[in-house]
Amino acid sequence: MKTDDLISALSERLEPTSPRAPLWAMALWIVGGLAVSAALMLTVLGLRPDFMTAMGTGMFWTKFTYTLALGGIGLWLAERMGRPGVQIGRPARMLQSLVIGFIVLAAIRYFTAPAADHARMLMGHSARLCPCYILALSVPLLLATLVAMRRLAPTNPTLTGFAAGLAAGGMAAFVYAFSCNESAMPFVAAWYTLPVLICGLVGAVIGRFALRW
C-alpha cells in the first residue's frame, strides 16, 4: 500500500476520541482488581478484629495513608509512562521521596525507642506472613493494572511494568491494612514496602513482554 493511500484510509476511518477516554477503561479495570482483592481479604483473612477501636490510633491512619499514596502515585506514574514522550520526573521523584521519607521516619522511631522494644517494633507477630499476604492480594491488582496499561501506549514496557507493579503492590498493601493489626511504623516500613517492591519487579518482568504493542 502506498503511504498516501494509507493516510486517506486512516483519515476516512477517523472517529472523534478524547485523551481522557483511556482513563475510564483503566479505572474500570482497577476498580475491578480492587474489588477482587478486597473480596479475597474479607473472605480469607477477615477484617482485623479490633477494627473499630484501632480507628482511634494514629498508626491505623498512617498505614492507610502510606499505602494509598504508594498506590495512587504509582498509578499516576504508570499513566504518565503510558503516554509517549511525557516527562515522568515529578511522579517518580514523589514516589521515591515517599518511600525514603517513610523509611527514615520509621528508622528514627526505631532507634529512639528502648532496645527492648526493637524486636517487637520491627518483627511484630506477623513479619513472615504479612509480605506473603500482600503479594497474594496483589495478584488480581497486578493483572488488572497491566491490562489497564495496555489501553495506553507505553514506550518503555519494562519500566512501565515496574510502575504498574508498584501501584498494584501499593493498592494490595492498602487492602491488607484492613486486615493487619500490626501497629509499629518500622514494621510497616519493612514488611509493607518489601512486597510492594517485589510486586514492582514482577510487574517489570511481565510488562517487558505483556506491555509491548
Partner: peptide, 15 residues
C-alpha cells in the same frame, strides 16, 4: 502512522 492512529488517545494535549 498506524500506531499513532490506533493510540491517538494516548496523546496528552498538554504536552
Amino acid at each position: 502512522l498506524i500506531a499513532m492512529h490506533r493510540r491517538r488517545d494516548s496523546y496528552d494535549p498538554n504536552q
